[in-house]
Amino acid sequence: MKIKNPLIILGGIILLIGFYLIGVYNSLVGVAQEVDGQWAQVETQYQRRFDLIPNLLESTKGIFEQEKEVFGLIADARSRYSGAANQTEKVKAANSLESAIGRLLVIVESYPELKSNETVLGLMDELAGTENRVSVERKRYNDKVKIYNVKTKTFPTVLVAGMLGFADKAYFEAAETAQEAPVIDFN
């Protein structure tokens, strides 16, 4: 009689820990899915940005002959993005594209014949709108990553998150070049 009791208690404890682990696992899966879903939103906007650029180049072709450098940067970022193997590379390519687009916007501002062209203006609107969409979706991604990371790093989840295979997720750092105004050399 006396030996049986501790066994029951032990079994109960194991059972409780098992239930706890299942609960933690399920809730972490839910949060991780949200992060991944939000990342997909960011990528959708990246793709939109890449799709817009050829149109802009087409409509500004003649005028931009002397601005080859910017278009070289854009083309380079584009090929790096499509060839990116992982998220970090994608972010890098997207960031360098972002700074190139910033320069492009400033260049367009400096051409009066472009500023009065409805097609170009429309494309610039689309591009600026996409930039804003990217930053909105990215902010939401970071918010979701924050929730996830707080969850995985909080005691007692932190004790089991690694064991269950939930690693930290990286925040989206905006490119430093994108935050400062681009400098254009007009020589």
Partner: peptide
């Protein structure tokens, strides 16, 4: 209401 349409309404 694409970005270019609303841009045109503003301008």
């Amino acid at each position: 209401l694409t970005d270019s349409v609303v841009g045109r309404i503003i301008r």
